[in-house]
């Protein structure tokens, strides 16, 4: 027994070193696996508040870009108005929909919340955003985040007033995507190299592709609404040994300047998840 105490005393520094290393590494690998940070609530509140202070200054430098993005988004939405289209066929009968708007609420699938970006990084291999909207304001994990120009990321962690969003520019981020032209589906990932380019994998070589084609979120994604812009094809990488293309995409969102985002809640997600779990149990 005495020898054990002597051993601990003699190697106390080394043992402390080992203990701290193990704590740090367990934090790291646990977070990478489940995205549950230790002291998450407290740390997010503190770092969120500091980031918010910084952002109140940084925001002024981005105002012009933010404004441009919002004007473009408004223009796109205005183009979709029904009043823009008029049929030449006057014999067409106009049917007035008698269903009240309220009565279709139970069929609503996506609910949008606005949120301010207070912290963002694009320099690391695992980039995250910080939003000033948290659990008290209706945000929870696994909600999609879209900006004025396209998708931004996925909520992984929430504290009371802030939430952490895994950016598309994160090596662990994956989303199901499709080509706008042909509807062929693939998977979008980031390779960690440049914050302007992401990759779309598993597109069959039979699909007609040209540079500049739009890539949208697919209908299969459980967290993103379908047909949200992801990016445009910048380069077609042809791998002769495989039947699939890898497409280099230019991201639609400018991740360094995005200031306002929408958080999307899928109101039918619970039902879908329950069904998927039931199907897995039956196997």
């Amino acid at each position: 027994m005495r020898n054990i105490f002597l051993f601990i005393r003699r190697y106390s520094n080394f043992l402390l070193f080992l203990v701290l290393q193990i704590i740090a590494l367990s934090f790291l690998f646990r977070f990478n696996k489940y995205h549950e940070a230790v002291f998450n609530g407290f740390s997010s509140e503190v770092t969120g508040r500091v980031s918010q202070k910084y952002n109140s200054v940084e925001y002024y430098f981005q105002l012009k870009k933010t404004n441009d993005a919002l004007v473009h988004e408004n223009l796109e939405l205005r183009k979709m108005l029904k009043d823009n289209y008029e049929s030449y066929d006057t014999t067409k009968k106009v049917v007035v929909d008698s269903i009240k708007v309220d009565s279709i609420l139970k069929y609503q699938k996506y609910q949008y919340y606005e949120a301010k970006v207070v912290g963002s990084f694009i320099t690391t291999q695992t980039n995250y955003f910080m939003l000033h909207r948290g659990a008290k304001q209706g945000v929870h994990a696994d909600m999609g985040v879209i900006g004025p120009q396209g998708i931004v990321g996925r909520v992984v962690n929430v504290s009371d007033n802030f939430s952490t969003v895994m950016s598309v520019l994160n090596r662990q981020f994956k989303v199901d995507a499709k080509l706008k032209k042909s509807g062929d589906r693939g998977r979008v990932e980031w390779d960690g190299a440049s914050p302007q380019y992401i990759f779309l994998k598993n597109i069959p070589k039979s699909a007609p592709i040209a540079k500049g084609d739009s890539v949208l979120t697919s209908d299969l994604s459980s967290i993103f609404p379908p047909n949200i812009m992801i990016g445009t094809v910048a380069e077609i990488v042809n791998d002769p040994s495989s039947n699939f293309y890898t497409l280099k995409l230019k991201t639609a969102t400018n991740f360094s300047s995005v200031q306002y985002v929408n958080v999307v809640e899928n109101l039918q997600l619970d039902e879908r998840k329950a069904l998927e779990e039931a199907a897995q149990k039956n196997q």
């Binding site: 740090a24 934090f27 790291l28 940070a37 995250y128």
Partner: peptide, 17 residues
């Protein structure tokens, strides 16, 4: 630093070393 960059443990491990 880790909590600001959202990768708890990475820089802490290197600093302790």
């Amino acid at each position: 630093l880790d909590y600001f960059l959202k990768c708890p443990g990475l820089h802490a491990a290197a600093c302790v070393l």
